[in-house]
Simulated assay, not measured.
Amino acid sequence: MAMTDRIKDFMQSPRGKKMMDRGRAQMQKPQTQQKLRELAQRVTGKTGPHR
């Protein structure tokens, strides 16, 4: 079984769906969104939208 098939099967399982729901709930938090913006800026080396 290919890795992508295994991932797909997991994500369709009750445990995978629960994990996705938790992830979506975390993404709704402003703190999480800010942390991801900061991480993206560090990774890309950009300090803001002016670049």
Rank of each mutant, 00 (worst) to 15 (best):
residue 42 R to H: 10
residue 35 K to H: 12
residue 21 D to T: 10
residue 20 M to H: 08
residue 9 D to N: 13
residue 43 V to A: 10
residue 13 S to E: 07
residue 23 G to Y: 10
residue 29 K to C: 03
residue 1 M to L: 05
residue 38 E to W: 01
residue 45 G to I: 00
residue 36 L to S: 01
residue 24 R to H: 11
residue 17 K to I: 06
residue 45 G to H: 00
residue 47 T to G: 14
residue 16 G to W: 02
residue 16 G to P: 00
residue 51 R to P: 05
residue 39 L to T: 11
residue 5 D to R: 03
residue 44 T to M: 01
residue 32 T to W: 06
residue 24 R to N: 10
residue 45 G to R: 00
residue 34 Q to C: 07
residue 34 Q to V: 05
residue 13 S to M: 02
residue 41 Q to G: 14
residue 11 M to L: 08
residue 31 Q to R: 02
residue 15 R to V: 08
residue 34 Q to K: 11
residue 18 K to S: 12
residue 47 T to K: 12
residue 35 K to Y: 10
residue 11 M to A: 08
residue 41 Q to N: 15
residue 1 M to K: 04
residue 49 P to E: 14
residue 4 T to W: 09
residue 25 A to Y: 06
residue 17 K to S: 11
residue 50 H to Y: 13
residue 2 A to S: 15
residue 43 V to G: 05
residue 35 K to V: 02
residue 43 V to Q: 06
residue 14 P to C: 06
residue 33 Q to F: 04
residue 4 T to G: 06
residue 4 T to H: 13
residue 7 I to G: 05
residue 7 I to T: 06
residue 46 K to N: 10
residue 11 M to R: 04
residue 37 R to V: 09
residue 32 T to F: 07
residue 8 K to S: 15
residue 44 T to K: 00
residue 45 G to Q: 00
residue 13 S to K: 01
residue 18 K to T: 09
residue 24 R to A: 12
residue 47 T to P: 04
residue 50 H to T: 11
residue 51 R to W: 15
residue 35 K to W: 04
residue 2 A to W: 11
residue 19 M to H: 09
residue 34 Q to H: 13
residue 9 D to Q: 13
residue 16 G to T: 03
residue 3 M to T: 12
residue 21 D to V: 06
residue 42 R to Q: 13
residue 30 P to D: 14
residue 44 T to E: 03
residue 19 M to F: 11
residue 49 P to Y: 13
residue 31 Q to Y: 06
residue 38 E to Q: 07
residue 48 G to H: 05
residue 40 A to I: 00
residue 47 T to A: 14
residue 1 M to F: 11
residue 44 T to P: 01
residue 46 K to Y: 12
residue 35 K to T: 08
residue 38 E to G: 02
residue 7 I to A: 12
residue 7 I to S: 07
residue 43 V to H: 02
residue 31 Q to E: 15
residue 41 Q to T: 03
residue 17 K to Y: 09
residue 49 P to C: 11
residue 22 R to S: 14
residue 2 A to D: 15
residue 9 D to C: 06
residue 3 M to N: 13
residue 21 D to L: 07
residue 8 K to C: 09
residue 24 R to Y: 09
residue 40 A to E: 04
residue 47 T to M: 14
residue 50 H to I: 04
residue 12 Q to C: 09
residue 51 R to N: 14
residue 30 P to V: 03
residue 26 Q to K: 06
residue 9 D to K: 08
residue 20 M to S: 14
residue 39 L to E: 14
residue 15 R to Y: 12
residue 27 M to G: 06
residue 2 A to K: 05
residue 21 D to I: 03
residue 32 T to Q: 07
residue 50 H to P: 02
residue 40 A to R: 00
residue 26 Q to F: 09
residue 3 M to L: 09
residue 37 R to C: 11
residue 5 D to G: 08
residue 27 M to L: 08
residue 9 D to R: 10
residue 33 Q to R: 06
residue 20 M to R: 10
residue 26 Q to M: 10
residue 33 Q to W: 05
residue 10 F to T: 05
residue 27 M to K: 00
residue 14 P to Q: 06
residue 29 K to F: 04
residue 15 R to T: 14
residue 16 G to R: 00
residue 39 L to F: 13
residue 40 A to W: 00
residue 13 S to V: 01
residue 46 K to Q: 14
residue 28 Q to I: 00
residue 36 L to M: 04
residue 51 R to F: 12
residue 4 T to S: 14
residue 13 S to F: 07
residue 4 T to R: 04
residue 33 Q to N: 08
residue 38 E to H: 03
residue 46 K to I: 03
residue 24 R to I: 06
residue 21 D to E: 15
residue 10 F to I: 01
residue 7 I to K: 01
residue 47 T to I: 08
residue 50 H to L: 11
residue 45 G to D: 01
residue 7 I to R: 03
residue 16 G to Y: 05
